[in-house]
């Protein structure tokens, strides 16, 4: 058994704040000591005195000296985190959860489907895949957001698209500001059937309503529930399978997820929140 207090946060210093969209910022945090993590594992980020909220770092686990957290304003803690300035101290607990099953993706087509700020955890996975692109047959990224202003990491999209065996397609629900790209929900991008479905995995992260329709669409196009990994949304607190709230059936997202193979959870009640 461990003698460490699992509720005690480590300190981290905010080194830089990057404006991503009008409602999303990325905090670059240098922890007081390096915290090794796997892509897809998450941290509890403490806004001192206010509380914690869970975030999967959007940065590369291969460069853990600083951690990046891309944050959308949703509640009290995120609102306060978005007001924070460089130099301030935040708290960090983790990493928690299993992370993405990257080993399984070797030799496969990997379909990455992101929605809005949901591209953040996926970016950490992309960095890992990009470091050894030869290991994967193909990385296909489909990304949707509400408007062009809501797309995160916009200056990186072209770079990603240029990488060998990588393709990147984005879409917006509502066009504006001279947007000349795709318009429509992200599931539309899943129609283009050039993926070797029998030999691939799909990984998705985004709002729950999007996950629901992406899962439906993927199954329609031939993916089995065994091939679909979803970043599930639940309220989380302890991060260690004790406080109880983040379960789907017998699984605790904080311990067994937060990315879950759809086949594991599909038969339990309220997989997608009402």
């Amino acid at each position: 058994m461990s003698d460490l207090n699992p509720y005690m946060p480590l300190s981290g210093t905010v080194e830089r704040v990057i404006d991503e969209t009008p409602t999303i910022k990325t905090l670059v945090v240098r922890p007081e000591k390096v915290i090794p993590f796997r892509s897809g594992q998450f941290m509890q980020l403490t806004m001192p005195g206010l509380g914690e909220a869970p975030f999967t770092p959007s940065s590369s686990p291969n460069r853990p000296e600083t951690l990046e957290f891309t944050i959308l304003k949703m509640g009290a803690v995120t609102a306060a985190l978005l007001e924070i300035e460089a130099g301030r101290t935040v708290g960090l607990r983790g990493p928690f959860g299993k992370g993405y099953p990257v080993e399984k993706f070797k030799g496969k087509d990997v379909l990455i489907v992101g929605g809005g700020v949901g591209l953040a955890p996926l970016r950490s996975l992309l960095y890992v895949l990009f470091d050894t692109l030869d290991d994967y047959k193909r990385v296909s990224i489909k990304y949707g957001a509400r408007t062009p202003d809501d797309l995160v990491y916009r200056d990186m999209h072209d770079e990603w698209a240029k990488l060998p065996n990588v393709d990147f397609t984005s879409t917006v629900d509502v066009s504006s500001n001279g947007w000349s790209g795709n318009v429509g929900v992200v599931t539309k991008l899943l129609d283009a059937g050039d993926i070797d479905i029998g030999n691939s995995y799909a990984v998705s992260c985004g709002p729950e309503i999007m996950l629901k329709f992406v899962t439906q669409k993927l199954q329609e196009t031939g993916f089995s529930p065994e091939q679909i990994y979803l970043s599930m949304n639940r309220r989380m607190s302890c991060g260690t399978g004790k406080c109880g709230r983040c379960n789907i059936g017998p699984y605790y997202l904080c311990k067994d997820g937060p990315d879950m193979k759809y086949a594991k959870i599909m038969d339990y009640p309220n997989v997608f929140s009402s």
């Binding site: 909220a53 949703m74 639940r234 309220r235 709230r245 983040c246 309220n270 929140s273 009402s274």
Partner: peptide, 13 residues
């Protein structure tokens, strides 16, 4: 207990 920021909950009822 299980309500998320934004108001969604897997056990709303």
């Amino acid at each position: 207990y299980s309500r998320m920021s934004g108001g969604g909950s897997p056990r709303l009822g």
